[in-house]
Lab assay of single mutants.
Amino acid sequence: KELVSALYDYQEKSPREVTMKKGDILTLLNSTNKDWWKVEVNGRQGFVPAAYVKKL
């Protein structure tokens, strides 16, 4: 599985998104959309802005 690192804090703005803190390591589930990537963090799945994470 592919991992990404959070470059910035992000506070979810809808139920489809997830909150992350800078430095968090997230499991990348889907990166086909260039703007929003689906990740899993702390057992929750949702979307984060692609520009806020980088692949490890």
Rank of each mutant, 00 (worst) to 15 (best):
K1S: 12
E12M: 14
S14I: 05
R44H: 08
P49K: 04
V39L: 03
E17H: 07
K38Y: 15
S14L: 08
N33I: 06
S5E: 15
N33A: 09
R16A: 12
K22W: 04
K13M: 12
E17S: 08
A50L: 02
R16L: 13
D35Y: 15
P49S: 02
P49T: 01
E40M: 09
K34L: 10
A51Q: 11
K13H: 09
V48A: 03
D24R: 03
A50T: 05
K13N: 10
I25N: 04
L29S: 02
L56A: 07
T19I: 03
N42L: 08
L29P: 00
E2A: 12
V48K: 01
G43I: 02
E17I: 04
S31W: 10
S31D: 15
V4T: 05
M20S: 01
K55W: 09
W36I: 03
W36H: 03
T19P: 07
F47V: 07
E2Q: 14
L26S: 02
A51Y: 10
P49A: 02
L7V: 09
K34Q: 12
G46P: 01
G23S: 04
E12A: 15
S14K: 07
N30C: 13
G23C: 07
V18K: 01
T32G: 10
G23F: 06
Q45C: 12
S5K: 15
T32I: 09
G46L: 04
N30W: 08
K13L: 10
R44D: 03
T27M: 13
N33V: 05
T27F: 13
D35E: 12
E12F: 07
R44L: 07
L29I: 14
N33D: 14
Y8M: 12
E2P: 11
A6G: 03
P49I: 03
A51I: 11
K13V: 09
W37Y: 08
W37V: 07
K21M: 10
E2H: 12
L3F: 14
Q11P: 06
E12R: 15
D24C: 07
K55I: 14
S31N: 09
V39H: 00
R16H: 13
K55C: 13
W36N: 02
E2I: 15
P49H: 02
Y8H: 11
N42H: 11
K1T: 13
W37P: 01
E12D: 05
P15Y: 10
K1C: 15
S14H: 12
L29V: 11
S31R: 09
S31A: 13
P15D: 13
Q45I: 15
M20T: 03
N30T: 08
A50F: 03
V41C: 11
V48C: 03
V48T: 02
P15N: 11
K34H: 11
Q11D: 14
K54W: 09
P15K: 10
G46W: 04
V4R: 05
Y52W: 08
L56D: 07
K13E: 08
T32L: 10
L28D: 00
L7R: 08
P49Y: 03
N30E: 15
V48W: 01
D35I: 15
N30D: 15
V18L: 15
E40A: 09
K1D: 10
N42R: 11
K1G: 12
W36Y: 08
E12V: 06
V39D: 01
L7K: 08
G23P: 00
K21R: 13
L28T: 01
V41S: 11
L28I: 07
T32S: 14
G46V: 04
E12Q: 14
W36E: 04
T19W: 05
A6I: 02
D24Y: 05
L3M: 12
A6R: 00
T19Y: 04
K34I: 10
D9G: 06
L28M: 03
S14W: 06
A51L: 10
Y8T: 08
T19R: 06
L29D: 01
K21T: 09
E40H: 05
A6S: 05
D35T: 14
I25G: 02
K21V: 10
L7P: 01
Q45K: 11
R44Q: 08
W37C: 05
I25D: 02
Y10D: 00
L3V: 09
Q45R: 11
S14N: 12
K1M: 13
D9W: 04
I25H: 05
Y8E: 10
D24P: 00
V41M: 13
T27P: 13
F47L: 09
G23W: 05
L28F: 03
V18A: 05
T32D: 15
L7M: 10
K1I: 14
E2V: 15
K54E: 13
Q11G: 08
A50I: 03
Y10N: 01
L26K: 01
P49D: 02
L26R: 01
G43S: 06
N30M: 09
L28E: 00
K55L: 14
P15V: 10
M20G: 00
